[in-house]
Every structure is written in C-alpha cells, then in structure tokens.
C-alpha cells in the first residue's frame, strides 16, 4: 500500500516538473533510464526541482528522499552538503530503498558526511546485496579482494 502511495506521489511529482525536468515515476531505481533528472537546466529550474523534491521527502516519499540526497551530493539546485546528503540517504535506506542502502554503504566507506565506518558500510552493502542488488555484491567482492589491482 505504501508503495502505491509512493508511486502516486512520484507520478504527481513528475507531472509537476515535466516541463523542465524528466523524473522517474518508477520506484525501481536500479533502472537508470527510469530515473533521470537532467542536469543541464538552468539553476533556477534546478532549485525549483530541489524544493519540490525536498517537500515530498519531508512527507516521507523515500524516492524523493534519495533524490534529495543525490542533489546535495552533486550540488544541483542546492549547495553541496555531504552531511545532508548522508542524512537523506540514510533515511531512504532505513525505509528499505535498495539504491539508498547501497549508496549509504559507499558513503560509510568514503566517510562522506560522517566518520568512515567499515562495519556500518558492510552492514548496508550486505543489506542491499542480500536483497539482490548486484552492484552491492560486486563492491563486497572487490573492495576486500587482494587480487584487485592486477591486470584488470
């Protein structure tokens, strides 16, 4: 039921921003074609998009939370802010968004907005990998592999 509401909210959001931006209405974030927000638009359009997304994020839309996190990461529509990027990503991850769980794991490895914490990183990467997010498995394999760094 929550998913249905989430999809409806995202659809509304897409309509709101369709003239300036293309935003996915799908909650399947693994498909990047379904989830694109063009970055070449004017700053004021990006700001408008950010404000709109943040509003939805505050209302509990986990997809909007993740989008807001990435906008804080990239500096689109808002000043770059690693802590806020972490905070929103964490919220979406805790709500179960796979992409957010994966990215949160990477944030913990990099120490973005927080102190690096390998245990937390592994926890979130495992959470995503366990639910079938393939890139999380790749990270777990490669970052701790002694072999990485040879001929590939």
């Amino acid at each position: 039921m929550n998913n249905v509401i989430g999809v409806k909210k995202s659809l509304t959001l897409s309509v709101l921003l369709s003239t300036a931006l293309t935003i996915s209405s799908s909650i399947d974030l693994a498909d990047e074609r379904q989830c694109r927000l063009f970055s070449g638009h004017r700053p004021e359009e990006q700001e408008k998009a950010f404000q709109c997304l943040e509003e939805h994020a505050k209302q509990g839309d986990i997809r909007a939370q993740y989008l807001v996190s990435t906008m804080y990461n990239s500096g689109h529509g808002v000043e770059k802010d690693e802590y806020n990027a972490y905070k929103w990503c964490r919220q979406a991850a805790e709500e179960g968004l796979l992409e957010a769980q994966f990215q949160l794991g990477l944030m913990y490895l990099n120490g973005e907005g927080i102190t690096p914490d390998d245990d937390e990183a592994i926890k979130w990467l495992w959470a995503a990998a366990d639910r079938g997010y393939p890139q999380a498995s790749e990270v777990l394999q490669f970052i701790f592999s002694d072999d990485f760094g040879l001929g590939c």
Binding site: R36, L37, S74, N110
Partner: peptide
C-alpha cells in the same frame, strides 16, 4: 558506481 540519478546524453554521475 553510478548514482543512477542525473544523466545527460552520455554523461552521468558516479560515486
């Protein structure tokens, strides 16, 4: 790793 969020033509954001 792709952020799967911003993309324009062949340019995309990665972590």
């Amino acid at each position: 790793f792709p952020l799967n969020i911003f993309k324009q033509d062949r340019i995309a954001y990665y972590r």
